[in-house]
Design a protein around this nucleic acid. Structure first.
Length: 525
RNA sequence: GGCAGUGUAGCUCAGCUGGUUAGAGCGUGGCACUCAUAAUGCCAAGGUCGGUGGUUCGAGCCCACUCACUGCUACCA
């Protein structure tokens, strides 16, 4: 029986088109999902869209279409982005689906049955024009003590009937949970923030609204809709079939990983576990928050025009390069910055020059000098053994790094070996051995090819187009590409016929025309 | 203001419980090679490890103070 591994992205809010931040989270999750599958896990990878709430209603009005039509249109865009990025999610959930209404109402009833939901009044400064509440610090004061929203609209103090969740009573339970599960929140810096936040004390949470109706109705109180987070967070168990405990995917819960942006850490590490505890459901194993991306050190925003269209970028640089860059260049969990120059540098240096050219230079020698077959493996020298050992050690290094979701460290370690292999190849100089010691040449080429096999296997989660292509060039059978095969026992067999080598990654050559590259000119989103 | 974190070569970052001349990649300069995608290899230049003062036989790594930047500081996702 395989170990199960259930991971999720946050569900995206589709009141606009997907942007690079959405893409980044999805492809990081995808790399983890692929990694786990290759490492023998039974993976369930979930993503989707969070379609309720006031902002969807407002955007729909602005665009003059029914809100469900807006949701349908934009959810389709998010789905399409996933396909362009080669995301291997097993399900795509939308919070407007009937199954999700069932699950949301079921968890609500359980929290209510547990005595954690009560009716009271939510009060605050409300702007009729904006249809939204504002905090005291967001307001500006005008003549005669009148207060105004950031939009300039006047606000009034209103009290609204609302259901509340007894979050305050979960303070100690949450602190105990964090204490007993030190890996629950990552990275470490986020954990510190959450713990200190909870320690300061929690107050009960308003979890329903009557001011709009675009949401999941509260059971037995249809004039209330669930406020966005109760509904949104529940998507993770909806996808497991909740409340049907006999559902096929029910055993995947609790999730092994919620991958989210750092901005929504509180909802996932405070509210969500409290809801689940209240409903008598298991709490997820880990929540990991990634950082934000900056374009040349500037925050991405529509107003500065540097919001990039991820599909256009993937098509421009190539999917593998796009994925590789963001997973390799940015310390996973921290904020990162990117630029056209940085992407091109990575693409050319790491992919085309280091790995692509290594495959090309070695396999073309095999093709010309070894009858296009895996060369004969002779006695191994110390240099051969050192290099092979470094390659075989990568699997364990990758697993260790994955334990902290240090995707960048995995790629760093793999490319260290790519560099070692180029140095080995230059040092052994098989083109010289061809004349002086052909048998030794074959051994050098065999060692190089075997290292490439390991690299091909381990890079599959990150560069899902080129890695299989590399394994094809080495004639590695489709059923021999799991991490289980990344060891000496499955080494290349001399004499196996190989196809003619072809390039893995094209070099990026700067276009003649200026301003046509997505990293240089922002395409407003 | 309070709490937390960061500050190491032009750029992005590693630096184990403090221990001999502080490392890598990219970029730059030179050389070599020719199997290869004008790719690769070798060598070199370049850092008062934010600052000041301590502890220690010895500190990038510990302590105090200080400067700069970042995050969090509840119902906004």
């Amino acid at each position: 029986m395989k170990d199960r591994f259930f991971l999720t992205t946050a569900i995206s809010y589709p009141n606009g088109a997907p942007h690079l931040g959405h893409a980044y989270e999805l492809l990081a999750a995808d790399a983890i999902a692929r990694f786990m599958r290759l490492d023998g896990k039974d993976v369930f990878f979930l993503t989707g869209t969070d379609e309720h709430g006031l902002k969807m209603v407002q955007t729909a009005e602005r665009e003059g279409l029914p809100v469900k039509d807006l949701a349908d249109r934009n959810a389709a865009r998010f789905r399409a982005m996933g396909q362009t990025l080669a995301a291997t999610n097993d399900d795509f959930i939308r919070t407007t689906e009937p199954r999700h209404y069932d699950a949301s109402q079921a968890i609500w009833k359980r929290m209510e049955a547990n005595g954690d939901i009560y009716l009271s009044k939510y009060s605050g400064w409300y702007s009729v024009r904006d249809e939204a509440f504002f905090g005291e610090d967001e307001l500006t004061s005008g003549d005669g003590g009148k207060k105004f929203a950031p939009s300039g609209a006047p606000v009034e103090w209103v009290e609204e009937e609302s259901y509340f969740f007894k979050l305050a009573s979960y303070q100690q339970k949450l602190l105990d949970w964090y204490d007993a599960h030190p890996d629950f929140i990552g990275p470490e810096t986020r954990k510190n923030e959450v713990v200190s936040f909870v320690k300061r004390g929690l107050t009960d949470l308003s979890i329903s609204r009557k001011t709009f109706s675009w949401g999941v109705p509260v059971p037995d109180a249809p004039d209330h809709v669930m406020y966005v987070w109760v509904d949104a967070l529940t998507n993770y168990i909806t996808a497991c079939g909740f409340p049907d405990e006999s559902a096929e995917r029910y055993p995947y819960w609790p999730a092994n990983l919620h991958l989210i942006g750092k901005d929504i850490i509180r909802f996932h590490t405070v509210y969500w576990p409290a809801f689940l505890m209240s409903a008598g459901l298991p709490v997820p194993k880990r929540v990991f928050a990634h950082g934000f991306l900056n374009n040349r050190g500037e925050k991405m925003s529509k107003s500065t025009g540097n919001v990039l269209e991820p599909i256009a970028m993937a098509e421009h640089y190539g999917l593998d390069a796009f994925r590789y860059f963001f997973l390799r260049e940015i310390t996973f969990g921290a904020d990162g910055s990117y630029s056209h120059e940085a992407i091109v540098a990575r693409l050319n240096a790491d992919l085309a020059n280091d790995l692509g050219n290594l495959a090309q230079r070695s396999l073309s020698m095999v093709n010309k000098n070894c009858e296009a077959k895996i060369p004969a493996k002779g006695p191994l020298s110390d240099e051969d053994k050192v290099l092979l050992d470094a390659a075989y050690a990568l699997r364990a290094e990758a697993r260790a790094a994955m334990n902290d979701f240090a995707l960048h460290s995995i790629l760093n370690a793999i490319w260290k070996v790519v560099g070692d292999t180029n140095r080995y190849f230059a040092g052994q100089a098989p083109w010289a051995l061809r004349k002086t010691d052909p048998a030794r040449m074959e051994t050098v080429l065999w060692v190089t090819a075997e290292v490439l096999r390991i690299i091909g296997i381990l890079t599959q989660p990150f560069i899902p187009l080129a890695a299989p292509k590399l394994l094809d060039l080495l004639a590695v059978p489709a059923d021999s590409r799991d991490f289980a095969h990344a060891e000496a026992g499955f080494a290349l067999t001399s004499g196996t016929e190989l196809p003619a080598p072809t390039a893995l990654f094209p070099r990026y050559v700067e276009a003649e025309t200026e301003g046509q590259t997505p990293g240089k000119e922002g395409k407003g989103g």
